[in-house]
């Protein structure tokens, strides 16, 4: 990989050791990294350089990560992965609401972080990025609702239908790209990159599970349609809530 094609990542964390370790780890894995220890350094870095992605710790002295995330999001579409040591639901909900693209609780597995960085960059670079779901807490489609904070599907009667991790990831990707054909490879790319890789079912299995869950007839599906020899398409209007 030539130097100029290296993707640039800005790491913001108040722990100097973690900062330098992440710096070294990500550089070893082919990224160009700069670090910041607080909000002021983050702004300085943003003013003086261009980045493809920000890894942002939620607990920072002074201005906290959530506030920084919101102000970053107000200025640009730069992908943001939030890190937190709190690990409770509230952080995830807030992080997503503040416009973070992904969320990773500490102590994370470094490989997991790499996978998420890759997936987030891939999504960001997809031509004609789909629905801008930044800041959305719920996505509505065809009377169904996907709750992004609790990762639940809610049926038209308001009953919560829990989803498996695989089903949630696939449905989220589909909802981010409504009415667009996504090939199996693209779907695999976009949904992959979590800790359970080796056993992930094929996209077809996940799709058939999802269809069953949203009562979409697999012989004549209305919502998740098969496009022969191309892939799948989510045929529905998607609206964001909150």
């Amino acid at each position: 990989m030539a130097m100029e094609t290296k993707e640039r990542i800005l790491v913001v964390d108040d722990d100097p050791d973690i900062r330098s370790l992440l710096h070294e780890y990500l550089e070893r894995n082919g990224y160009s990294v700069r670090t910041a220890g607080n909000g002021r350094e983050l702004r300085m870095a943003m003013d003086t350089g261009r980045y493809d992605l920000v890894v942002l710790d939620i607990m920072l002295p002074g201005e906290d990560g959530l506030t920084l995330c919101r102000s970053l999001r107000a200025e640009s579409h730069i992908p943001i992965i939030m890190l937190t040591a709190r690990g409770d639901e509230m952080d995830r909900i807030l992080g997503l609401e503040m416009g973070a693209d992904d969320y990773l609780p500490k102590p994370f597995n470094p490989r997991e972080l790499l996978a998420r960085i890759k997936a987030t960059l891939r999504r960001a670079s997809m031509p004609g990025r789909g629905t801008d779901i930044n800041g959305a807490r719920r996505l509505r489609f065809a009377d169904w609702t996907l709750d992004l904070s609790t990762r639940h599907l809610v049926n038209p009667e308001g009953v919560v239908m829990p989803l498996s991790s695989g089903e949630f990831r696939l449905l989220k990707i589909l909802l981010e790209h409504p009415n667009r054909v996504l090939s199996r490879d693209q779907l695999l790319d976009l949904t992959r990159g979590r800790d359970r890789d080796p056993f992930d079912r094929s996209i077809d299995v996940q799709v058939s599970r999802l269809r069953r869950r949203i009562q979409d007839d697999s012989q004549a599906p209305d919502i998740i349609k098969t496009v022969r020899s191309e892939g799948y398409i989510l045929a529905a209007e998607v609206t964001c809530e909150e």
Binding site: D17, I18, P107
Partner: peptide
């Protein structure tokens, strides 16, 4: 959590 994160890296 923080020391475990460091150790992992």
């Amino acid at each position: 959590k923080t020391p475990i994160t460091r150790l992992r890296l």
